[in-house]
Structure formats: structure tokens, C-alpha cells
Amino acid sequence: MAYLVMSSAKIAGAAVVLAMLAGCTKTSAIAPLSFGPVTESASATAKPAGSDAILEALNGGILPQDAASTLSRAERLRALEAEYQALEKTPGGQSVAWASPVGGASGEVKAGTPYQVGQQNCRQYTHSVQIKGTVVTGRGAACRNADGSWTPLS
């Protein structure tokens, strides 16, 4: 009888170990954070790309102020739209490019892997811009607000 109980315990223990190992050998990747609207009401009030609200929510973006001030208002808006798109919709490591059809300025925004700080989704990102042949790069992080806007961390 003792032998039967011991064998049953060994079989049960082996089943538990196999179940744990099966969980370890899964090949699925870790799913990134979702950056969709938090609630239905948030999607109704989310600030759309291309509006002046992006300028306000992104607080001028992460480009150094002396470089950003040389851009026209339309170029700054294109640059901020690219930042918003990279933060909101682009997978980590992929770029969002923008170019001015008139002034010749252009840039590229690349956001990193999303992470969470408290209840906020955040991302580090870089924004490289070429203005009159000079490349300027801004680096920073931003967190998503409940209303769908992004605020750079200072």
C-alpha cells in the first residue's frame, strides 16, 4: 500500500512539473501594451493628429527649443504629428518620417518599447530633424494621458 501511495505521489509530482515546463516552453512573444482609448468617453475626447491640440498636449515636443523655433508653424505641426503617430501607433523601433514640402526641413521619430509607470502607458523616443543641412536630435519620454493625448516627461 505504501508503494502505491508513493507511486501516485511521484506521478502527480511529475505531472505538475511537466505542466510548469510546458508553460516555460511557449514560443509566443510578450504582447506590447495597448495604446487604444482607455474608455469610450476617452475616444470621443481624444485629440486627433493634425490639430492644434497636439501642439498643446505635446508641449512643443522633444526637439531642442532653439532648433524647433527655426521651423515654421506648419513644419512644427508636421513634426509634432510625427511624434504623436510614433507614440500612439507605431511599433517600437519603427520610424515615422515627415518632410516639409516648402521649407526643406525633414525629420524622423522613432519610439521605443512601451512601458508602464503607475497607470500610465509611456514610451521613450527620439526625434531627429534636418534643418538647413544640420541634423538636430531630441531624446525623451512621454506618457499617455487618460484623454488620449501624450505629455513629454521633463
Results as ranks from 00 to 15, higher is better:
residue 120 Q to R: 10
residue 99 A to G: 09
residue 49 A to E: 00
residue 57 A to I: 02
residue 104 G to R: 01
residue 154 S to A: 13
residue 50 G to L: 01
residue 110 K to F: 08
residue 54 I to Q: 12
residue 56 E to C: 05
residue 5 V to Y: 13
residue 8 S to A: 14
residue 124 Q to F: 12
residue 102 V to H: 13
residue 5 V to G: 04
residue 127 H to Y: 07
residue 26 K to S: 12
residue 134 T to L: 01
residue 106 S to R: 14
residue 102 V to S: 10
residue 84 Y to F: 15
residue 16 V to Y: 06
residue 84 Y to P: 03
residue 104 G to H: 13
residue 80 L to R: 02
residue 22 A to Y: 14
residue 69 S to Q: 07
residue 98 W to Y: 14
residue 80 L to A: 09
residue 96 V to M: 10
residue 10 K to F: 09
residue 77 L to G: 10
residue 130 Q to V: 14
residue 73 R to I: 06
residue 35 F to V: 13
residue 42 A to S: 12
residue 87 L to Y: 13
residue 46 A to T: 08
residue 24 C to Q: 12
residue 131 I to V: 14
residue 148 G to T: 01
residue 45 T to A: 11
residue 65 Q to M: 02
residue 77 L to E: 15
residue 106 S to V: 01
residue 108 E to N: 15
residue 105 A to K: 00
residue 18 L to F: 10
residue 104 G to I: 08
residue 31 A to M: 11
residue 24 C to W: 12
residue 96 V to P: 03
residue 73 R to T: 14
residue 114 P to M: 08
residue 105 A to W: 09
residue 34 S to W: 08
residue 79 A to R: 06
residue 19 A to D: 04
residue 153 L to K: 05
residue 61 G to T: 10
residue 99 A to F: 08
residue 87 L to W: 14
residue 42 A to H: 02
residue 117 V to W: 07
residue 79 A to L: 13
residue 21 L to N: 11
residue 77 L to H: 15
residue 121 N to G: 13
residue 103 G to C: 02
residue 64 P to A: 05
residue 9 A to C: 03
residue 25 T to V: 15
residue 101 P to M: 13
residue 122 C to F: 01
residue 66 D to H: 07
residue 11 I to R: 14
residue 26 K to Y: 09
residue 107 G to F: 11
residue 16 V to C: 01
residue 23 G to S: 10
residue 47 K to P: 03
residue 40 E to H: 06
residue 154 S to P: 13
residue 64 P to R: 02
residue 96 V to G: 03
residue 65 Q to D: 04
residue 148 G to A: 00
residue 142 A to V: 09
residue 100 S to W: 11
residue 126 T to N: 13
residue 90 T to C: 06
residue 59 N to M: 07
residue 132 K to I: 03
residue 19 A to P: 00
residue 47 K to V: 15
residue 131 I to T: 00
residue 17 V to L: 08
residue 70 T to K: 11
residue 116 Q to D: 08
residue 115 Y to T: 12
residue 132 K to R: 13
residue 90 T to R: 14
residue 67 A to C: 01
residue 67 A to L: 01
residue 64 P to C: 05
residue 106 S to E: 07
residue 154 S to I: 00
residue 150 W to I: 01
residue 82 A to N: 04
residue 130 Q to M: 02
residue 144 R to N: 10
residue 75 E to N: 15
residue 99 A to I: 11
residue 33 L to R: 06
residue 122 C to Y: 12
residue 103 G to S: 14
residue 25 T to M: 12
residue 79 A to P: 02
residue 149 S to D: 00
residue 33 L to N: 04
residue 138 G to A: 12
residue 9 A to M: 10
residue 9 A to K: 06
residue 74 A to F: 05
residue 70 T to W: 04
residue 28 S to W: 13
residue 146 A to V: 12
residue 89 K to R: 14
residue 124 Q to K: 06
